[in-house]
């Protein structure tokens, strides 16, 4: 049953700071005394759904917010708990199954700053990408990494990898390299590369040596060569473009002259 009331008379304790503002064209929506949408409006008309059983709250929230991001969900979950309402209704809204790990993750998200929470939500970072946070008893050590990722607005892909590698290094009792200055590394790739080197020092050192060896070889000018890692394999990649059969034969001849250099460097030695 619906009734029309003045928003000023309603309870704002479920205000979970939704990421998207409630459209001005729509009225405040309330479930019994609790506002569920339009938290920014302190007065004006409000549609109130009266439901003594309380079972309609999940449906109403689902209609207002078909899908919530993780930190938004965490905030709603905490508000529902505080208001002594059924907090389990949050799980379908954030697309997760109720589990002790997910509960722990929501609690961790709640302990992070609003800026970090918003980066997680705007970039749609998922629980798997945040799983490293579950390994920390307290989050003081990993928070600076999260703050830098947030302040610099890194993409989900880069940010999640930086978080994972920094977290693993901290858990290994190693200090992760600090982020390079923003003007030298606007998208975080440089930092990510440094973290990779710290996390996989042996393979990275080997890749670097092989890369330097390849660069030092007297490659013909029309060929591009590089030592490239692709997953668990690192290989020599040579690319060329030709415009005629004659040119093709010439390139092949030039390439064959590289064989002794490759043999000498022994790139494929373990």
């Amino acid at each position: 049953m619906w009734e029309l009331k003045d928003a000023a008379t309603l309870n704002l304790s479920l205000n979970f700071r939704p990421l998207k503002a409630w459209p001005q064209a729509l009225p405040v929506i309330s479930f019994n005394q609790f506002v569920v949408a339009g938290f920014d409006r302190l007065q004006g008309p409000a549609f109130v759904r009266r439901d003594a059983s309380g079972t309609g709250l999940a449906e109403l929230l689902g209609s207002c917010y078909p899908r919530l991001a993780l930190a938004e969900g965490a905030r709603l979950w905490a508000r529902l708990k505080q208001a002594d309402l059924d907090d389990s209704i949050v799980w379908p809204l954030i697309g997760l199954k109720s589990s002790s790990d997910h509960e722990r993750l929501l609690k961790i998200l709640l302990s992070l700053s609003p800026e970090i929470q918003d980066w997680i939500d705007v970039r749609q970072v998922g629980p798997r990408e945040l799983a490293i946070l579950l390994c920390f008893r307290t989050h003081e050590s990993i928070t600076p990494t999260l703050e830098t990722i947030t302040q610099r607005g890194f993409s989900r892909n880069i940010g999640a990898q930086i978080l994972e590698l920094s977290g693993e290094l901290l858990l290994m009792d190693q200090t992760p390299p600090s982020a390079p200055p923003q003007d030298q590394d606007p998208d975080g790739r440089l930092w990510l590369g440094q973290l990779e080197k710290s996390r996989r020092p042996l393979s990275s050192a080997k890749d670097s040596t092989q890369s330097e060896q390849v660069q030092a070889m007297p490659w013909p000018q029309q060929l591009r060569s590089q030592w490239k890692r692709n997953g668990d394999q690192s290989r020599l990649e040579v690319s060329l473009s030709v415009g005629s059969l004659q040119e093709w034969n010439k390139r092949l001849e030039e390439l064959s002259k590289m064989t002794p250099h490759l043999g000498q460097a022994d790139l494929w030695k373990s």
């Binding site: 390994c135 693993e168 858990l171 290994m172 009792d173 996390r199 996989r200 020092p201 042996l202 393979s203 080997k206 890692r229 997953g231 668990d232 394999q233 690192s234 494929w268 030695k269 373990s270």
Partner: peptide, 24 residues
Amino acid sequence: GMKGWVTRAEVYPSQDGKLRYDQA
């Protein structure tokens, strides 16, 4: 934790999706 030889292993995604040591 991250102090054992398994968890701190330098592994990479392999063609079957599992994480493995460098092929070499």
